[in-house]
């Protein structure tokens, strides 16, 4: 992979990192509005952080194997990962709220 592709890939990772942190801030705001309990918030954050760390670790492996021509699919990769996080927490929070009601 050449330097230019590497820079693009890292830019995607940086954007993803920012989005994920924004996402965490949103969850915390929801917690403040008493949408769910502290234990639920901690569980969700722990899951996300665990996932985030593993994504970064795998990203290095990806960079070492990926070809220049594939860099454009990286954006879709990150979109998928973000969608997974949202779905996971969406269902989790929905389930919690239904049980609470």
């Amino acid at each position: 992979m050449n330097l230019k592709s590497n820079i693009i890939a890292l830019q995607y990772l940086k954007n993803f990192n920012e989005e994920l942190h924004e996402f965490k801030r949103t969850i915390i705001k929801e917690y403040v509005k008493e949408k769910f309990k502290k234990t639920e918030l901690l569980f969700a954050l722990e899951k996300l952080t665990e996932f985030e760390n593993r994504v970064y670790k795998k990203f290095n492996h990806y960079l070492s194997t990926v070809q220049d021509t594939e860099i454009q699919i990286l954006h879709k990769n990150f979109s998928n990962i973000r969608a997974q996080c949202q779905r996971f927490l969406g269902l989790y929070i929905k389930n919690y709220n239904i049980k609470k009601n």
Binding site: V55, H61, Y62, T65, V66, Q67, E70, I73
Partner: peptide, 11 residues
């Protein structure tokens, strides 16, 4: 795939 959660055509 060894690169999951990233998908790579070449891998």
């Amino acid at each position: 795939l060894s690169t999951q959660p990233f998908f790579s055509n070449s891998v």
